[in-house]
């Protein structure tokens, strides 16, 4: 795991907004630049972002880990903190602690077919993994990106998704839950995209990120076509506060999502997903 740049993981470093872009309704992508060192991260990790005077929230990194040019977060305004973060504009300051957590198992994907199953804002934590997959494309087998979202207007990173789609070495499918007549693409839930891709289930690793219900349906669908439980990884979301496994807010039975996750192998948490109390 990459260690936080700050020696004290509880002390945020001040970052400045270098770019702010509206990606979908209520969804902004911020590119942040540090006043000191740029924190290094691996795909799937997250940072605790502070909107000064409002509070702190766990947000996955959505940028390219290899870029070395700022750190990128995609934020959906759903609460007071996230709304305040999405209202930041170029030049504004915010706090950042991190990166924290265990990300996607990128080295484990070498030589395997890879399926990325994303739902809604869940495409953002997967995007760093997609950058890595595309940068090292020859090291992987078939690569498929299956993305489902609510409506055509909610498609995240639209122009980038279109550019991935134009590549001949990646299979990209997008579906929406509902649409009007102007939409010429697929309508239906994201799992209906699985029959459209070619992969060898026994040597496939699937990375899933999205609403937990979607991921539960996703693992069922992947399992039904032969992808083993140990070949599926899920990015879990719980209320994270300290980011280092001390406070217990994100306790996930024996694990802490902030420290042991957010990415978990499915066979290790399968029994937990069925527990309503968690």
């Amino acid at each position: 795991m990459v260690q936080p740049a700050s020696h004290d993981p509880m002390v945020p470093q001040v970052m400045r907004v270098a770019q702010a872009q509206l990606d979908a309704p209520d969804v902004f992508t911020l590119k942040l630049e540090p006043e000191a060192d740029l924190p290094r991260f691996t795909p799937g990790q997250f940072n605790m972002l502070t909107a000064f005077g409002v509070g702190e929230s766990a947000i996955s990194v959505s940028g390219d880990p290899a870029s070395g040019d700022g750190i990128v977060h995609t934020i959906r305004a759903v609460g007071a903190v996230s709304r305040a973060l999405t209202e930041l504009r170029v030049g504004d300051s915010l706090g950042l602690r991190g990166p924290f957590g265990v990300g996607w198992p990128m080295e484990e994907l070498y030589g395997k077919d890879v399926i990325l199953l994303a739902g809604g804002i869940g495409l953002a934590p997967l995007r760093p993994a997609i950058y890595r997959l595309l940068a090292e494309r020859e090291r992987f087998g078939a690569v498929a990106i299956l993305y489902g979202t609510r409506s055509p207007a909610d498609i995240l990173f639209r122009s980038e998704v279109e550019s991935w789609r134009q590549r001949l070495d990646v299979d990209v499918h997008v579906t929406v839950d509902h649409a009007d007549e102007s939409w010429h693409g697929q309508v239906g839930v994201v799992t209906t995209l699985l029959p459209r891709i070619a992969f060898d289930p026994g040597r496939t690793v699937a990375l899933l990120c999205g609403p937990e219900i979607m991921m539960r349906f996703g693992v069922q669908a992947l399992g039904s076509v032969g992808v083993p439980d140990e070949g599926m990884y899920l990015s879990m979301e719980r209320s994270m506060k300290c980011g280092i496994g001390l406070c217990g807010h994100c306790q996930f039975s024996p694990a802490f999502v902030c420290k042991d996750g957010p990415v978990f192998r499915y066979d290790q948490i399968r029994y937990l997903l069925a527990l309503k109390e968690l």
């Binding site: 809604g120 979202t149 839930v189 609403p211």
Partner: peptide, 17 residues
């Protein structure tokens, strides 16, 4: 039916803040 359940749940909709 399963797909309809997911659509009815509107899982990509805005969660409660």
């Amino acid at each position: 039916l399963q797909a309809t359940r997911l659509q009815v749940l509107d899982i990509y909709g805005k969660p409660a803040a």
